[in-house]
Structures are given as structure tokens and as C-alpha cells.
Design a protein around this nucleic acid. Structure first.
Length: 926
RNA sequence: GCUGGGGUGGCGGAAUUGGUAGACGCCCAGGACUUAAAAUCCUGUGCCCUUAGGGGCGUACGGGUUCGAUUCCCGUCCCCAGUACCA
């Protein structure tokens, strides 16, 4: 037997055993309940980083725990292997993207196996392999049939740095999700998937999963879908007031420069409402404020503008151009956008009040949302208020707080202020809450809520409006002008148009080679063997679509594929999918809160509608783990940060180990910070190196112990050393007691008793309960602490192997065996080794199908408890009493206590509070 | 700005949701072993006062409720994340 815990040897031994027996291969059937544990699949960059280690360690804790609890566990892994880095490698180094990707997969698989994550390696999928992406294409064709895929020309998000198109989700915040640079707009023809058809279901079905998902992810998805209920109201447009007959006008240079409306813009109004040339349709959630409207404000691209182009003044046209160009190249998001706009000279009529209002163009009105036109109510909307202030438009208050009076309007810019300035309470404008409607004709005096309902009904009745719901969610643009993705299975024929490829011809395979430029053109277009084909319909000459699909398509359904990974007919067999899905526990980073997680939910709903599955939500429970970060050292004296790795830095620390100064080799004083790990910042940690030095078990144990899983984790090497020490301590305990615990004829002698044994058993069973509770709640740091306590309790035992009684040896064996079983999820190799010794069974936990230790409440019970006694709220004594003590006995014991009497004697006892078996609180008069 | 989530030792973090604040670990200090070092083991470790016994103060800050508040309520400050004119 080795003298010292030697991680590498133990780890290799058990990894071999597991692999030989196919220990973690999931098999359908049997009477065990299923459990599907899943971590977000990695991009095969070639190297695991600590974030992966954290993610997969957490997933493995769950998988192991459920296995020990008697579940039939599916715990697969695969590769999100399409995407830009492979293409970049091809451009930069001339390698073949497929070979590059396969090599990376091979090396990362090795790393994961060295980590000892309990995956079912037989179920791997990889997005770039034709047997997988065939079904991306299959799904695409199905969606096309269902009207869920379509093509249109629009402005798309464009990342200049990556030379790539981005979906709205990938351009969230106006920044590219991959490189973080600002996104611009570009006109492109693109294939879209109709995510908007599922807006309501994506929103409403969240009720189903809400309890199992982090609240912030739920919130972000809600915000992203952005349903808002309100009304459309039509404002009639009056003939222009320029005094120039339309026919006499010749378009000015500015007017000619303004692009015509893109195709279909007149029809674009959501949910059936069409934009009409005679009126402007606005969307509002506050129809109750309509009497306070001072203008109609439209987007610069609004069709009504295009329609009246010839009648607009020069300065109006110039402003339109200015606003449009600003929109194409958004400024950075740090600086707040300044309100801008201009009066077009057009007039529109408020259908409620009959008031004639100016039509303005405003840069704060977006053509992409609602109808591209709003009614401006400055008294009750922040933006309209700002706009009105800037352009000195009238502000009219029409809502008061329920008890308040109308405000006297402050400022010098309200020529038509009609406020009845009386009453004691004044409101500060803008007042955006609901309240009571005033100055609004027959609706005056009603509450906002009543007025909204009634005014909407009135508008419907009179034919100038309707109730309406709008969404922020847009359809998902999936076309990418890239090579390394799944080809879109469409063929263009001069005679037949866009024709879907036949199912039997799938997959449309990527050619081996294509000229890569990285310049945002489709490399496939330069491969004639790929492009030139014949029309599936008429057989005539035709050409293939040369764009490929967004890689997020691959990750939208991969978790289904694991359940039936080798099916060549359909993406997944319905019966098999139903056996394993939905995923019971999903784990990953929250950076996918609105990208992958919305797409996957959408995809599952589509699959349901296709009759492939019978449920709506793919992920029952979601856990989002925090990032792994590290300390960086840098010199920013030149304005740009120059990073130094820890090895290049001399650090001076004070007695408390706080950094006093950090210097580079040449003496430059450096600043330090905590930042996301990366090679370029010199604070990256290579998991392989950690495994080599400390072992996989120690690395895994540490990442689980160091911080709650949802928190950020700051990497400190000393922490992992602590994990090694812990494993070594157990190693010593096990070997110290080896001779006594492998024997199982450890029945106690009649009448034999031992306090030490009883205490240890108590600790063991208390620990079992704690850990079980923690793991059920997905807490991974506290169970490790509990394991440390248990191991400390065994080490501190007042008995040694030579002289211990049978009953004591049995208690140790129980403790060690339980410790090993509860350690498996965190440090599986070491746990197997310890268990095989303690249980006297060389085959270990997996082979024996050992179960989680069973908690015995009787054994966990304490017979003596410590009761704190407070006098006037201050802790004054601690009593050791029987755990069975009654309240009266406790009261007596407390008042009789010497220490307590020091504080109560000579004083009047006002009150004694006894918390059963918990605490006594005595109140005395001073 | 708005919306969420937070402020607990030198650090990461515990605390059965109103009942002994600081579990567990890291760091640090002292000791043992050693020719020495490393490793390991033991002891100490919230702050202040005290030779000791002990006392006082402590969960961002200020109030409140309560016998009792890290936990509940009100106000203030600060940090993190999301979002950015969504009508």
C-alpha cells in the first residue's frame, strides 16, 4: 500500500475501470426512474478552460448524486463544432476546418476523460458531422412547409470586426456577442425563422418552468419578448399646408437621395393593421392620455414621410437624412442619445378631441417597433416630455394622481397650458403612473384603467382604432455568409424560384474546400461543384443557396439528439425522446439567457407542433454558474493595458497578505484587478496543468468548494492545495484504520458502549442529512464543508486502531464508507479508492451499484443540547441540558444558573421567554 | 435613468428563514518534528480594553418593530448584473 496519496495513479486506475465496464453508458428500460443531467455543450476550441471544469464538475455532481439515489441517469456530451474559429484557423493557417475541428474534439475529449467526468461517450454528437447537420436541414424544410421559415430583404445586424451577420439576440445591447464590438446595420436578403409566431407561448409557458429557473433568466426572457398591451389609434392626415400644389413640386436633391421604402414597408404594421396613406396609425399603451397629445411623432423611415416627400421642406429632408444615417451607424451606448426631430408641416387629427396636431419626425421613434409612430403626450411620458421641452411644444396634463389636483405647469414653455391649477397637492411632471383622467371630454373623472377599456371600445366602435398587442421579439435571421455551417437546403431555379431540396437528398454536404477570405461573402458561392445543380422541381439548371445556418441552430436541438444519437431517418425517435426528455437539470452560463435558451425553447415548441414530442419545455430546471476569474497585473501608463503573467510579476504583500505593490521585472509598478480569465491577460489557468500537479479530484473538489456555484469564482492556487490536503487527510485516516475497517465481523460485544462511537455515528448521520439537503438544493460548496467536518471528526476520534473496541471500529467503518459515498460526486476517483478499502470490496462504488448512505434520525439525535440564556437580549450563559428537556425544566435551569443570577439578582424579572429546546431569554427591569 | 440581485473577519464564504454571528477552507502567527528546509501535525486567529478572570463593540449607514434582528419594516449610501429611447 502506498504511503502517500498519489492522485495520478488512482485516477488512471479508476478511469480505466469505468471505461472498461462502460460504467456511465445510459440504457433505456429497467424500472429505475430516469434523470437527464446536461451541461451546455462546448465549442471545440481545442482547450478546456476552468469555466468548463466548473460547469462539468457541477453537472457531474448532479449526475453522480442522482445515480447514487437510484436513478437511471443520462449524462451526455457533444460538440458545438460549427462556427467561426474553425474558419478563422483556415484563413490564417490554411488548415482544413474539418480536420482542425476533429483534432480539437479529440484533444478536448482526452481532457474531459482525464478530469473523470462521468459521461456516456457513446452518445456524442458533433454539429459539423453530416449525420447531425442533415437534420438541421430536415428541420428547416419542415419549418418551410409550416410557413415558419421565409426569406426577406431587411436591415440586418452586421459586425464589421467579424464580418458576420448577427441575429437580434446576438446583437443584444448593440454589441456583437462574440467580439463585443458595436454592431452596424446592413441591407441583406436573409432566411428567417418565425420565432414571433411563438411569442405568446414562449412567454406564457414560462409559468411551467419558472420555479426551476433562475429568476433573472426568466426576467430577461420576459423583457426580451417584451409583450405590451395597448391600442392602435388612427390619426387622419390633413392635406399639406405648404400652399404649393403637389403636382408643381419637383423632388429636391435631398428628396431624391432618400431611399424609397423597402419592399413591404407599407404592409409591415403588426398583427393585421395596415398602414394607410390617409392616416397615421400609432400604438399606445396609454390611450387614456390621448387628450394630452400635442403631436404625432413618426420615425424617419415612416411611409407617411416617403409618401409626402415631395411636399416636405428642404430642412425637413435634410433632417430625415441625418437621422437615418445616424441610425445606420449607432454611436456607442455609453452616451445617451439626444432627442432630435423636426416639424414636417403635416397635420394630423386627434380622433378623440378633434384637435389638429403637428406631425413631427423624431429620432426616438423606431420603425421596428409598434407602428413606427406615436402620439406624444409630454405630461405623462418621459421621452415625450423631454422632446416637448427641447422643442417648446405645449404640455397638457390629463392625468392626476387619484387624490391629487392638476399640476400648475412649471416652466416658460407652455403656451397652451390648460391646467386648472388649484388644490394643495402638486405632481411633478411627467407623471407616468395611472391615476384619474381629467380634461378629457366625457372620460374626465374616470380612472386610467376604466378609461383605457372604454376609450379602446369607443375607438373600435367608431372605426379608428383597435386593441393591440405588440412584441419586442423579432424573427430569427439565420443566414450566414460563412462556410463552416450547415448549408441551407434551398435551390434557386430561374423557372421555379426558391425550391426546397428533396428530403432524400439530405444532407446537402459541405464541399471539402472553399476559398476563405473572411470578408463577409459566402465562400460556398465560389465552389461551382457546390453551387451548380438542377432544380428538384423542373430538373432545369439551378443554383444552390450559398449561405449557411447560424450555429445557434445546431444547439437548439442537440439535447434531443443525445437520446437517439444514431438515428439516420429522423432527428429523434418520438418514443425514445419521450423516454428521456425533458432535461431534468441543465447547467451553463447565463450569457445564454436570451440567445440559446430562447432558441431551444422555440425549437421544442416547433417540434411539438410537428408532432415529434408531446411537451413544450425542454429544460425543467436550469442552473447558471458564475464565471471563473483571475487576478491580472498590468501597466496602463501608456493608455493601453499591457498585461503581465503572475510569473513575471514580483508581488509585495503586507502581514494580512494584501497586495502592497506589484512590479514587473524591470521595476515598473503595476496595477492589479480581477478579470475574466484569458491567455492574453496572462491570468489563464490550464486545467491539464492543474490535473498534472494536483490531480483531477482536487481540481474538481476545489471549484465546487471555493464559492457558491452561481457566484463568480476567483482562482487562487492556494485553494486547490487545500483540496489536496483534505484528500490526503482522508487517505491517512483510511490507511490508519484499514486493518480494522475492512473486516466486517464487527458486532458489538453485549453491553459494550462507547461515547466516542456514539458521537461519531451521530456526526455521520447528521452529515448525511445535511449533504442530502444541500445537494437537493443544488448547493455544492456547503456539502464539501460538511465532508471536511466529518473527516475531521474521524481524525479527532479518541480511539486508535490498536485499542479500539469493536463498536468503535464499526463506527469508523460506517463513517469512512459514508464519507466515501458522499465524496464520489466531488472527487470520484479518490472516493472509489476509499470506498473499495472501507467496504472491503475492490470493485468500488460503480461496480457495486452502491447507493447514497441512508440517514437514521435516531442515530443523528443528540442527547445533550446547549441552550443559550440571554438577559435583556445579551448572551450571558450557556446551559448543557438533556435534549428531552421540557419548557418548565428549562426555565428553572436558567433561573437557577449562577452566571445568570449575577445579572438578575436584586432586579425584577419582568418576563421569561422560553423557546423550546432552543433558548431562554430573561427580561429584567434595570 | 429604469429593472433585478447584493453589501457578514485580511480573503472565499456559513448561519435549520426571527433564536449562541463568523461553520468549512485559504492566508497569517506561534510551537513540535528536522542538521536545515519542504511536507506533516498541534495551537491561535472578528475588533478593542484587560496580567488574568472578564468586559465592551460588531453582519454598509441611520431609525423602527421585537424578550431577541445578518434575517422583518422605513430611509440613506455603495457595489454587481441586465437594459437602453419598446410608446
Amino acid at each position: 500500500m502506498d504511503e502517500k496519496y498519489f492522485a495520478k495513479k488512482i485516477e488512471q486506475k479508476w478511469q480505466r475501470k469505468w471505461a472498461e465496464s462502460g460504467a456511465f453508458e445510459a440504457r433505456s428500460g429497467g424500472d429505475k426512474p430516469k434523470f437527464y443531467a446536461l451541461e451546455m455543450l462546448p465549442y471545440p476550441s481545442g482547450n478546456l478552460h476552468m469555466g468548463h471544469v466548473r460547469n462539468y464538475s457541477a453537472g457531474d455532481v448532479v449526475a453522480w448524486y442522482k445515480r447514487l439515489k437510484g436513478f437511471n441517469v443520462l449524462h451526455p456530451i457533444g460538440w458545438d463544432s460549427f462556427g467561426q474559429p474553425a474558419e478563422d484557423a483556415a484563413i490564417k493557417r490554411g488548415v482544413n476546418p474539418r480536420e482542425w475541428t476533429e483534432d480539437n474534439i479529440k484533444s478536448m475529449q482526452g481532457q474531459l476523460q482525464r478530469l473523470g467526468i462521468s459521461y456516456d461517450w457513446t452518445r456524442q454528437m458533433a454539429a459539423h458531422r453530416p449525420d447531425y447537420y442533415k437534420f438541421d436541414q430536415w428541420f428547416f424544410l419542415k419549418m418551410l412547409e409550416k410557413g415558419l421559415a421565409y426569406k426577406k430583404k431587411t436591415q440586418v445586424n452586421w459586425c464589421e470586426t467579424d464580418q458576420a451577420t448577427l441575429s437580434n439576440e446576438q446583437a443584444s445591447g448593440g454589441l456583437c456577442w462574440r467580439c463585443g464590438n458595436p454592431v452596424t446595420k446592413k441591407d441583406l436578403e436573409q432566411w428567417f425563422l418565425k420565432t414571433t409566431a411563438y411569442s405568446d407561448r414562449l412567454l406564457d409557458d414560462m409559468a411551467e418552468i419558472e420555479s426551476g429557473w433562475p429568476s433573472n433568466v426568466i426576467k430577461r426572457q420576459r423583457d426580451w419578448i417584451g409583450r405590451s398591451e395597448g391600442a392602435f389609434v388612427d390619426f387622419d392626415v390633413l392635406s399639406p399646408v405648404f400652399g404649393r400644389p403637389e403636382s408643381e413640386t419637383t423632388p429636391s436633391a435631398e428628396a431624391a437621395a432618400i431611399p424609397p421604402p423597402t419592399e413591404g414597408e407599407f404592409e409591415k404594421s403588426p398583427e393585421g393593421g395596415t398602414l394607410n396613406r390617409n392616416h397615421i396609425r400609432v400604438f399606445t399603451t396609454r390611450i387614456d392620455t390621448i387628450y394630452g397629445a400635442n403631436a404625432v411623432v413618426v420615425a424617419a423611415e415612416h411611409p407617411i414621410i416617403i409618401e409626402h416627400l415631395s411636399q416636405l421642406a428642404e430642412d425637413v429632408l435634410a433632417k430625415i437624412q441625418q437621422i437615418r444615417s445616424e441610425k445606420m451607424n449607432p454611436t456607442d451606448h455609453e452616451t445617451e442619445a439626444v432627442k432630435d426631430g423636426i416639424d414636417t408641416g403635416l397635420k394630423a387629427v386627434n380622433p378623440f378631441s378633434g384637435e389638429e396636431l403637428p406631425v413631427w419626425i423624431g429620432n426616438y421613434v423606431m420603425m421596428e417597433y409598434g407602428t413606427g409612430a406615436v402620439m406624444s403626450v409630454p405630461a405623462h411620458d418621459e421621452r415625450d416630455f423631454e422632446f416637448a421641452k427641447k422643442f417648446r411644444l405645449p404640455i397638457k396634463q390629463v392625468i392626476t394622481s387619484v387624490n391629487g389636483a392638476l399640476n400648475s405647469i412649471v416652466g416658460n414653455h407652455s403656451p397652451t397650458a390648460s391646467a386648472a391649477a388649484s388644490g394643495s397637492e402638486t405632481l411633478e411632471l411627467p407623471f407616468t403612473d395611472y391615476g384619474q383622467v381629467e380634461n378629457s371630454g366625457v372620460w374626465s373623472g374616470k380612472s386610467s384603467t376604466e378609461a383605457k377599456t372604454e376609450m379602446t371600445a369607443f375607438a373600435v366602435e367608431k372605426g379608428f382604432g383597435q386593441a393591440a398587442t405588440t412584441y419586442r421579439l423579432r424573427d430569427w435571421g439565420i443566414s450566414r455568409q460563412r462556410f463552416w455551417g450547415s448549408p441551407i437546403p434551398i435551390i434557386y431555379c430561374d423557372a421555379c424560384g426558391a425550391v426546397p431540396e428533396k428530403y432524400e437528398n439530405l444532407p446537402v454536404e459541405l464541399p471539402e474546400n472553399a476559398p476563405f477570405t473572411g470578408k463577409g461573402e459566402s465562400p460556398l458561392a465560389k465552389v461551382p461543384e457546390f453551387v451548380n445543380t438542377s432544380c428538384p422541381k423542373c430538373g432545369g439548371p439551378a443554383s444552390r443557396e450559398t449561405d449557411t445556418m447560424d450555429t445557434f441552430v445546431d444547439s437548439s436541438w442537440y439535447y434531443f439528439r443525445y437520446t437517439d444519437p444514431h438515428n439516420s431517418e429522423v432527428p429523434v425517435d418520438t418514443a425514445i425522446a419521450e423516454r428521456w426528455m425533458p432535461v431534468d437539470q441543465y447547467i451553463g452560463g447565463d450569457d445564454h439567457a436570451v440567445m440559446h435558451l430562447i432558441y431551444a425553447r422555440f425549437w421544442t415548441k416547433v417540434m411539438r407542433d410537428l408532432g415529434l414530442v408531446k411537451f413544450d419545455e425542454p429544460f425543467r430546471r436550469l442552473l447558471t454558474q458564475g464565471m471563473v476569474v483571475g487576478e491580472t497585473f498590468f501597466d496602463d501608463s501608456s493608455g493601453k493595458r499591457k498585461y503581465f503573467s503572475a510569473a513575471e510579476v514580483t508581488v509585495e504583500r503586507d502581514a494580512k497578505a494584501k497586495i502592497v505593490a506589484a512590479r514587473s521585472a524591470d521595476g515598473t509598478v503595476l496595477k492589479h484587478a480581477i478579470e475574466r480569465m484569458s491567455k492574453s491577460k496572462g491570468n489563464g489557468v490550464d486545467p491539464d496543468e492543474m490535473i498534472e500537479i494536483y490531480g483531477a479530484d482536487a481540481a474538481r473538489l476545489f471549484v465546487m468548494f471555493a464559492a457558491p456555484i452561481e457566484n463568480e469564482l476567483v482562482w487562487h492556487e492556494s485553494g486547490i492545495e487545500g483540496a489536496v490536503r483534505f484528500l490526503q487527510r482522508i487517505w491517512r485516516i483510511v490507511h490508519k484504520w484499514e486493518s480494522r475497517i475492512t473486516v466486517r465481523d464487527d458486532q458489538a460485544e453485549p453491553g459494550e458502549s462507547s461515547d466516542a462511537a456514539r458521537d461519531l455515528r451521530r456526526k455521520t448521520h447528521q452529515t448525511i442529512r445535511r449533504i442530502e439537503e444541500n445537494l437537493e438544493h443544488l448547493q455544492f460548496n456547503t456539502p464539501v464543508a460538511a465532508l471536511m467536518e466529518l473527516s475531521n471528526a474521524i481524525a479527532d476520534l479518541k480511539a486508535d486502531p490498536e485499542s479500539a473496541t469493536q463498536i468503535e471500529a464499526a463506527a469508523v467503518r460506517e463513517a469512512v464508507e459514508s464519507l466515501a459515498l458522499m465524496l464520489v460526486p466531488f472527487a470520484p476517483h479518490a472516493a472509489e479508492e476509499f470506498y473499495s478499502i472501507a467496504a472491503g470490496n475492490e470493485n468500488g462504488i460503480v461496480a457495486n451499484e452502491a447507493r447514497f448512505p441512508v440517514y437514521d434520525a435516531e442515530l443523528a439525535k443528540t442527547d445533550e443540547i446547549e441552550i443559550p440564556v440571554q438577559v435583556n437580549g445579551k448572551l450571558r450563559a450557556k446551559l448543557m441540558v438533556s435534549a428531552e428537556i421540557s419548557d418548565d425544566e428549562l426555565r428553572e435551569a436558567a433561573t437557577a444558573d449562577e452566571k445568570v443570577n449575577e445579572y438578575t439578582s436584586g432586579k425584577e424579572i419582568v418576563k421569561i421567554v422560553v423557546v423550546p429546546k432552543r433558548l431562554v431569554s430573561i427580561v429584567v427591569k434595570q
